[in-house]
Design a protein around this nucleic acid. Structure first.
Length: 260
DNA sequence: ATGGCTTGTTAAACAAGA
């Protein structure tokens, strides 16, 4: 089962590029971030005609996550637990049945947090604390679990072309990286790093200043696997060529294949 | 880079992103 994460930076703006990638990559499940749409305005028919079930958790103008799946989605839940006053649409969960066993999928859009320090950074760290709590509960299920999405975290210096320019940024500050590390160290596997080591592998290139042409990128879209999911992984890749297509998102898809 | 581009909202700028 091929499961991908893709921050599309607006579903309306990606109404051609997203189906184009689906046709080329034929993922079974896609976790989308930044749909920037309310649920009623999401063009679900386009994806249903391609064979996908569509579950959205949107809001007006900003954020918003969704799941596209060629297999039935069960027990869909919306919103990250831990703060009922949080109105930002950044988390969706669903269970997908494979041929032999089920996997719990979590799609997430972790807050950017800039400028740091400040209230937006405080929100990011508080959100990561809630994520850690949810991650603990998911591990206790002792089943295949994937938490995938735009983490807005550069885990290591090798995950940025110019790490020195990110030192005070909310994506790379010591507190951010430590919070991410705490979650991984609960027992998750960074799927991409289990397959590929070394620098030069990015999932985001800024629209500005010729970042793509200069390969000035960062790796911030991650797939974290529970031990039971990591045991099933056979491959994980970044579809970097998508960034060179017509009217691209500033992020590209990252996917993993699991023997489910 | 104090933001060089893109998006959404809404009708000419503004907010937000990373």
């Amino acid at each position: 089962m091929k499961i991908a994460t893709f921050n599309i930076n607006g579903i309306k703006a990606r109404i051609e590029a997203l189906p184009r990638w689906l046709d080329a990559a034929h993922p079974d499940v896609v976790l989308l971030q930044e749909i920037k749409s309310v649920d009623d305005a999401f063009p679900r028919e386009i994806f249903e005609e391609l064979g996908y079930q569509v579950e959205t958790h949107g809001q007006k103008s900003f954020n918003g996550v969704a799941i596209l799946s060629k297999h039935p989605l069960e027990d869909v839940t919306r919103g990250l637990p831990g703060d009922d006053s949080d109105e930002q649409a950044r988390w969706i969960e669903a269970t997908v049945m494979g041929e032999t066993q089920a996997i719990r999928l979590c799609g997430l859009y972790l807050p950017n947090g800039n400028p740091a320090p400040g209230p937006k950074y405080d929100y990011k760290l508080a959100w990561m604390a809630r994520l850690e709590a949810r991650a603990r509960d998911l591990l206790a299920l002792e089943m295949p679990v994937m938490m995938a999405g735009d983490y807005n975290v550069i885990p290591q210096p090798e995950d940025a072309a110019k790490p020195e320019s990110w030192t005070e940024d909310a994506l790379f500050r010591a507190e951010t990286r430590a919070a991410f590390c705490r979650i991984v160290n609960l027992g998750f596997t960074d799927a991409f790093r289990a397959v590929t080591q070394g620098p030069g592998h990015y999932s985001f290139w800024d629209y500005q200043a010729g970042a793509w042409q200069r390969n000035n990128g960062i790796r911030i879209d991650h797939l974290l696997l529970s031990p039971q999911a990591a045991d099933l992984m056979t491959d994980c890749q970044i579809d970097r060529d998508v960034r060179a297509g017509d009217k691209p998102s500033d992020h590209v898809p990252v996917w993993a294949d699991l023997a489910l």
